[in-house]
Simulated scan of single mutants.
Amino acid sequence: MAKVLYTASMSLDGFIAGPGGDMSWLAEYFSPNPIIADLIDGIGALLVGKKTYTGDDPNKGREGEGKAFGGGWDGPQYIVTHHVPADQEPNLFFVTDLADGLAQAKEAAGDKYVNVLGANLAHQLLESGDVDEILVSIAPVLLGDGTPLFRQPGGRNVKLERTHDSTAPLANNLWFKVKY
Rank of each mutant, 00 (worst) to 15 (best):
Y53E: 02
A86P: 02
N115C: 15
D41M: 03
G61W: 13
G72H: 14
L102A: 09
I138Q: 08
A105Y: 06
K60F: 08
F150K: 12
G44I: 06
T54Y: 15
A68D: 06
T96F: 03
D57Q: 10
E107Q: 15
A105M: 09
Y78P: 05
L46G: 07
V114A: 11
P148L: 04
K159T: 14
V131S: 03
D57C: 09
P58Q: 10
A139T: 04
L149Y: 02
L126C: 05
V48N: 00
V136N: 01
I138W: 01
E63W: 08
Q104L: 15
V48C: 06
G72W: 10
A109P: 04
L117P: 00
I40K: 12
L142W: 11
A45I: 05
G146P: 08
A45M: 06
P140S: 10
D130K: 09
L92T: 08
G64D: 14
L98P: 01
Q152L: 07
E89W: 06
G70N: 14
E63S: 14
Q124W: 00
R156C: 04
I40A: 14
A68T: 12
Y113Q: 04
P148Q: 08
G75W: 12
D56E: 11
L98Y: 00
K50F: 04
I79D: 08
I40Q: 08
P76S: 11
E63T: 15
V48M: 06
N120A: 09
L135P: 00
N91D: 15
T81H: 12
I134L: 02
K106I: 11
V95A: 09
F93K: 12
N115M: 12
L121H: 00
A109T: 03
G118C: 02
H82T: 14
G70K: 15
A139R: 05
R62A: 14
L135W: 01
F93E: 10
D97F: 01
D130G: 00
K112D: 03
T96C: 10
F93Q: 11
G154D: 06
G55C: 09
G101K: 05
V80P: 10
D41Y: 09
K60I: 03
G118L: 01
I138R: 03
K159C: 06
A105V: 07
L160R: 04
H82D: 12
Y53T: 00
V84G: 05
I79C: 10
E161S: 11
D145I: 02
V131R: 00
R156L: 11
G110D: 05
D41C: 04
K60S: 08
G55V: 06
V116F: 05
N91P: 03
A119G: 06
V131K: 02
E107C: 07
D132N: 12
F94E: 06
G155H: 13
I79A: 10
S128A: 15
D132C: 05
L143P: 10
V141M: 01
A122S: 12
G146I: 09
G110Q: 03
R151A: 13
A119Q: 04
G64C: 13
R162L: 04
D100F: 05
D145S: 15
E133D: 09
G61D: 13
L98N: 02
L160Y: 01
L125T: 05
G144D: 13
D97A: 00
Y53H: 07
K50D: 12
I134H: 00
